[in-house]
Design a protein around this nucleic acid. Sequence first.
DNA 1: ATTAATTTTTAAGTTGACTTAAAAAAGTTT
DNA 2: AAACTTTTTTAAGTCAACTTAAAAATTAAT
Lengths: 220, 220
Amino acid sequence: MSIAIENFVKAIYNNNSHNARNTKPGNIAKKLGISSAAATDMAKKLAAKDLLHYEKYQELQLTEKGKKMAMNIVRKHRLWEAFLFKMFDMSLHDIHKEAELLEHQTSDLLAEKISAYLGHPKFDPHGDPIPNADGKITTVDTSVALSQAIETKTYIISRLTSDDKEFFEFCAQHKLKYGNEVTVTKQFKKNKMTELSVNKNTILLNEDFSTLIYVNEINQ
Amino acid sequence: MSIAIENFVKAIYNNNSHNARNTKPGNIAKKLGISSAAATDMAKKLAAKDLLHYEKYQELQLTEKGKKMAMNIVRKHRLWEAFLFKMFDMSLHDIHKEAELLEHQTSDLLAEKISAYLGHPKFDPHGDPIPNADGKITTVDTSVALSQAIETKTYIISRLTSDDKEFFEFCAQHKLKYGNEVTVTKQFKKNKMTELSVNKNTILLNEDFSTLIYVNEINQ
DNA sequence: ATTAATTTTTAAGTTGACTTAAAAAAGTTT
DNA sequence: AAACTTTTTTAAGTCAACTTAAAAATTAAT
């Protein structure tokens, strides 16, 4: 399976994994930086390979086979993140970029060696759970993307699933970091904006960012 | 630059680095497992990119730019070999295969981190020299491929630049390993065969194998 | 030095992963 | 519910990296 296919399947998995809004070709295309047309083509191709279910104009859904493939790639990505984080003094952003490349060129054998070396960790440095060799996540994850959070509720940030520098800089500037409290004041469904209050400041996030920040409800 | 280009340039470098016999497209194609036609096409393309000199029916020669690129890839390959060898209990054959993939997805930054972690090693586990970050090899290498060795002379094996399992198995079977003595009894120029004596046994190698075994003359 | 064998090149075609532009369907607004 | 906007799909085309088969050139052999 090619790198393009692996990235496509992974993008769907990442999008679906936290009940995100939209898993149609156009949205996946946006995440991958390709045209919608290319994504539609790819979706048809992967349906023929039994990696996902495709019906015109409907949401894309991974098959069991597709999920397994996605988990395998996600596992390698997160193992590399954890490994590079432990071994070298590099920024999380740089580590993410390296893992994004290395994940596609890593045998199951090497992944297992890395996992063993790290003592089979359950989470990567972002707080994302690492699937085991069977593609199963054994930890319970109750976090949701901010885009899915409920108005008036208060949450704690559990992770930032960053893709780019801009996002990181924005988070740093607005005190959006692991462990901090945020209260969702408004969800604008039409414009897909999320308004929140952090440290008495009000922040407005568009969907690009609100789907990258995961939070847990405060139990009181 | 694509992986295909990187592998092509690397194959020429590896072929040229020890005054091997033939650097025409057909031979490079053979090493890469592609057709001669594809190799000719690629050679023309890379000539246009100023990575090599191409003239019909002549040997391919890397330009300075091409050499620099090759050294960068070779550096990453050998650093990965050294790193994986140190970190994990894996066979040299498996390590080689991983390095073959990882080398193309490794930033200069990560390569430097790996190098520093290892204390900037000069050689990989096969005995191959590791170029520095500027693409220079600072150690002196007097070894030659067995295909280039001189009749009646006795040598010590300095490294096996293996690509495949078959080769490894052959070497193990015939006591061709690092540090062992071999005497070249005959070079058959026409058939490109090399005859040697190891431990009083006579071995006949074809060009596929004799170009993968590097030896140093015994100074007496 | 011809002939024969081998290798390289050219030519034409395939496949995967894209693109842009237009057509079709879906979703939204009033 | 009609009109407008947005999204998805279709259609046609590009580009890189291959392939096979035939033609051209080189190399080797008698």
